[in-house]
Design a protein around this nucleic acid. Sequence first.
DNA 1: GCGGCTATTGGACGAATGCGCAATATCGTC
DNA 2: GACGATATTGCGCATTCGTCCAATAGCCGC
Lengths: 203, 203
Amino acid sequence: MARLSPSDRRDAIVAAALAVARQKGLAATTVRDVATEMGTSSGLVHHYFESMDEVLAAAFARVAEADLARSADEMAAADGPVAALAAFFRTYAPADADWAFQLWLDAWAEAARRPAIQATTRRLNLAWQALLEKTIREGVAAGQLVAADPGAAAWRILSLVDGLALQVVAHGTTIGRDDVERWAASAAELELGLAPGALGSGA
Amino acid sequence: MARLSPSDRRDAIVAAALAVARQKGLAATTVRDVATEMGTSSGLVHHYFESMDEVLAAAFARVAEADLARSADEMAAADGPVAALAAFFRTYAPADADWAFQLWLDAWAEAARRPAIQATTRRLNLAWQALLEKTIREGVAAGQLVAADPGAAAWRILSLVDGLALQVVAHGTTIGRDDVERWAASAAELELGLAPGALGSGA
DNA sequence: GCGGCTATTGGACGAATGCGCAATATCGTC
DNA sequence: GACGATATTGCGCATTCGTCCAATAGCCGC
């Protein structure tokens, strides 16, 4: 196989692990799966990663960080805190990303047993909460919304979206995909003292 | 080993599976673990269950159904819909039941790949939502609370508690255990047009 | 007390797991 | 064009997995 630089090879391993995890699940992704997907031998994986735990954590981190960056960009580009929050709900759980949220489910569950995965999910959940809290604080400072405890409000909004998306991804038919964005946005409007529809669809 | 009736043996298998799953996780529980815990041979497990998937689903169902029944009882015994909702928040995520919620996490993640588990988590999530929706409807009928869409309100409340509890169990230190009950209750008060503290601690 | 039904045993089977290591191939450097 | 560093190979190792099945043991009705 082509001889790659360590940094390129690490990327390739993570990309291959991700491709496998997407269809087999994070926990069920094996060293040999990754090697086969990459078109190399299995020994190569352990030449770059100490354990499978770290490979999976890196794979999960890649999608999760990309999603976070994308939402953060859209929120930063929005016109003010309220529009930023609307962007959050619009981009957080896109309809074509069930597999990405399934990765979150896998990672949360595995966190209890795999240290590297726990560190990653924890770090990214905190980053999401910090992003929301910062936006809420800006909105409060601008007098556009109300929040007695911006940190708690951020946790509530984030957790609500996660809890709703969980139902969609795990069970499919209990809740509609549209409901997640709509319901979460309307709860946030109430939470932050906004007018109904302020964070809602299209507006 | 003592020869048990089929029904007793099934119970024993489920109980043993539960004991193992509690400390090793649902997905990591094996046939041999269950047999060892039970003090019998491993072949016995497959004499009563077609596959490991069904053993795990039955084990999860046992705790989840017991928890649901316990909360439902306390809610039914409460004095009116508002007190019933307060009982819900008090009993949903007890401090000593992190392991039970970890089972939920495991089950949600496994649902995508194990049919028996998905059917179980789906059924129980729907039951929780129905319980909440019924209580909310009673409160609306009694004029004690406001909800334009009781079904949606029930999903929001349930999902918020799940999302918050998820952070506690998966990450431990991000959110405090007390925050789950307190924050979820205050969000529900807002959602249902109740006075702050109406569902809160001690009252 | 005896016979038959069946709960239970305990290991076989094939496939899969993470990880490690000596051998080999390939690239950049002089 | 040869050399040295190292990326890559390919298999071995020791376990573990779910499932299956013939043999055994224990209880109930007669």
